[in-house]
């Protein structure tokens, strides 16, 4: 019976689990952001064939469960290609691709939110497409996209909890272990839930600060 009680070491376990979630969240968000922006560039330059492939891929990733994507990468890829894929690698690949799909959609709608006249006017002045992108499209699109991106990040943080299913020892997995050992589901899952909640709130808060900063130049400061 001795081992069925909570110990102070459990706190370290929980912290480690949360750390795994946050680390994977940060890494996959960064990779996903870069890939998603790359896909948006492919679309912006209207690269033939590739643009269609990218759109199809992002629709497929957006409209299927992350759990199935994880299974496909973790169980499917090794079976097809006879390679070794660790749970963390599989989680990184899947979450990055999934984030990229959503970033792509946000980036495309942000680019489309800019009136065609602006781009046309700039082109009339002889500005290249790259300069249009850099000086006219990107600053406005970034201000448009930051709100949806923060909402996406808060969501992706929660999605990281699914990696426990393929055996990554994250906060949910730790919760599972503690639940099985102590048989106190209410305490364990409440603590785990609150830790996720706190992390999500932190991401939302940081995102809001960043958004305010981006918009500071256009905000009315009074007289």
């Amino acid at each position: 019976m001795r081992f069925s009680d909570f110990t102070s070491y459990d706190l370290i376990l929980l912290a480690q689990g949360l750390g795994t979630n946050i680390a994977l969240f940060l890494v996959t968000s960064l990779i996903g952001l870069l890939i998603g922006l790359g896909w948006a560039l492919v679309r912006f330059y209207r690269v033939p064939v590739l643009a269609q492939i990218v759109t199809f891929l992002s629709e497929l990733l957006k409209n299927s469960p992350v759990l199935v994507q994880l299974f496909l990468v973790f169980f499917g890829l090794p079976a097809l290609l006879h390679i070794r894929v660790t749970p963390v690698t599989a989680a990184t690949i899947t979450l990055s691709a999934n984030t990229a799909a959503f970033v792509y959609v946000i980036a495309v709608s942000a680019i489309e939110s800019i009136e065609r006249e602006q781009v046309e006017a700039a082109r009339v002045f002889g500005i290249t497409r790259w300069q249009v992108l850099r000086h006219i499209v990107t600053p406005q699109a970034a201000a448009f996209a930051v709100g949806p991106l923060v909402a996406l990040l808060v969501n992706q943080l929660q999605v990281t909890s699914l990696i426990s299913v393929i055996g990554v020892v994250d906060l949910t997995k730790i919760g599972h272990i503690l639940n099985m050992r102590t048989l106190k589901p209410f305490v364990v899952w409440t603590v785990v839930g609150l830790l996720y909640y706190g992390a999500a709130k932190l991401v939302a808060l940081l995102g809001e600060r960043f958004e305010n900063r981006l918009r500071a130049h256009s905000a009315w400061r009074g007289l």
């Binding site: 929660q158 999605v159 990281t160 699914l162 639940n179 899952w189 839930g193 909640y197 709130k201």
Partner: peptide
Amino acid sequence: DLFRNVPFIVQLFFFYYGLPE
């Protein structure tokens, strides 16, 4: 606020293991 910011899998385990309690 609570149910939107806690992962669904945690909510599910909370109910699945907690309700029999």
